[in-house]
Amino acid sequence: MSAVQEVTAAPALEAVPKRAMTLGAGTSLIALALLIAFPLFVKNFIIFQMTMLLIYGLAVLALNILTGGSGQFSLGQSAFYAVGAYTSAILMEHLGMNYALTLPVAGLVCFVFGFLFGQPALRLSGVYLALATFALATAMPQLLKLGYFEHWTGGVQGLVVTKPDPPETVQSVLAWAHLKMSQDMWLYYFTLLITIAIYIFSVNLLRSRSGRAFMAIRDNEIAASAMGINVALYKTLAFGVSAAITGIAGGLGAIAVQFVAPDGYTITLAISLFLGMVVGGVGWLPGSIVGSAFIIFVPNIAEGISKGLSGAVFGVILFLVIFLVPHGARQVAMVAQHLLGSLKRR
């Protein structure tokens, strides 16, 4: 077998059918109802954790579009997350822009950044592309500490971001109903609304002509090029879209945490997002929330088991998850769907 035939015969990632990328309508409505009702019964700290769950879920979803959709590996998502976070923070604190308006700006800035980075990355693939993005993630915190940008970024000390209050119209409606809404609860619902909008956009994107081009490139780049797909354009477009969504997630993260600093966006964050994608299931968009929950809550569970050996406990849990369900939450969902189908036939 020739080298070209070997490349043609071996896809980079396992193909995921378009129908398997999302949840069913009934399951989606149940999940949405739970997400809407959950903050009404918990304290503000839990609401904050759920907000971060949605934010990291967006970042994992963005990586899923890039890797699960177009087959490009990236360990540099923390760089795009940092650019989005700093864009929102600078616009809010230095220019006085409304927090909601900073998010599309952060997304646009990161889209341009990701698209431009994707141009030189076209020559790379597989582990070499992963190493290039790894270098980007490693360099970003150091770039943010440079004195040239210190006036805007705050340098090593970072920037404090003001947490927004609910809009006056919302407060008026709640006051009429003798109800109150905390800042954390408002930010959770605001983040949930944006998450739903981006999720719907992502599903439609992967089902569109561009999404089919992404998946054709993922499955076999040579065959996609032979069918007339502009491989260079769609690979850079995938990078840009993924970076834009990650930037919006970064902006939301800056608003939720109320602080941005270079050391908060190290390579550890990039690896965590990649881990979340793998645990959630590569190419399965609903798994992004599952992967986000894993990287947020499992370290706390590991620390609760053993504070001195929390890293070792986390490693054991991760090993067991990868060993038992190598395809992540998508595999669990498929098994559950099969069992439910068997019960219905009975």
Rank of each mutant, 00 (worst) to 15 (best):
Met1Pro: 08
Met1Ala: 09
Ala3Pro: 00
Val4Tyr: 05
Gln5Cys: 05
Val7Glu: 14
Ala10Trp: 01
Ala10Glu: 04
Ala12Ser: 14
Glu14Leu: 06
Ala15His: 14
Ala20Val: 00
Gly24Asn: 06
Ala25Pro: 14
Ser28Gly: 12
Ser28Cys: 08
Leu29Pro: 04
Ala31Phe: 13
Leu40Ala: 13
Lys43Arg: 14
Ile46Glu: 11
Met52Ile: 10
Gly57Pro: 11
Ile65Ala: 00
Thr67Asp: 02
Gly71Ser: 09
Ser74Pro: 09
Gly76Ala: 08
Ser78Gly: 15
Val83Met: 15
Tyr86Trp: 08
Tyr86Arg: 06
Gly96Asn: 10
Tyr99Met: 02
Leu103Asn: 03
Ala106Met: 10
Phe111Arg: 00
Leu124Arg: 04
Ala130Arg: 01
Ala132Trp: 01
Phe134Ala: 07
Leu144Gln: 12
Gly147His: 03
Gly147Pro: 00
Leu159Asn: 03
Lys163Asn: 04
Pro166His: 05
Glu168Gln: 13
Thr169Cys: 00
Thr169Met: 03
Gln171Glu: 11
Ser172Arg: 14
Val173Ala: 12
Leu174Arg: 01
Ala177Thr: 11
Met181His: 10
Ser182Gln: 03
Gln183Trp: 01
Met185Phe: 02
Met185Tyr: 02
Ile196Asp: 03
Ile200Arg: 13
Phe201Ile: 09
Arg218Pro: 10
Glu221Trp: 02
Ala223Tyr: 01
Ala226Ile: 04
Thr236Pro: 01
Thr236Ala: 08
Ser242Gln: 07
Ala244Pro: 07
Ile245Asp: 08
Thr246Ser: 12
Ile248Val: 13
Gly251Thr: 10
Ala256Thr: 15
Ala256Cys: 11
Ala256Glu: 12
Ala256Val: 06
Gln258Trp: 02
Val260Asn: 02
Pro262Ser: 13
Thr268Asp: 10
Leu269Lys: 15
Ala293Ser: 04
Ile295Gln: 08
Val298Ala: 08
Ile301Asn: 11
Gly304Asn: 14
Ile305Lys: 05
Gly308Tyr: 13
Gly311Phe: 05
Gly311Ala: 07
Val316Asp: 11
Val316Leu: 15
Ile317Asn: 07
Leu324Lys: 02
Pro326His: 12
Arg330Met: 06
Ala333Leu: 03
Met334Ser: 14
Gln337Gly: 10
Gln337Cys: 00
Leu340Phe: 14
Leu340Ala: 11
Ser342Tyr: 00
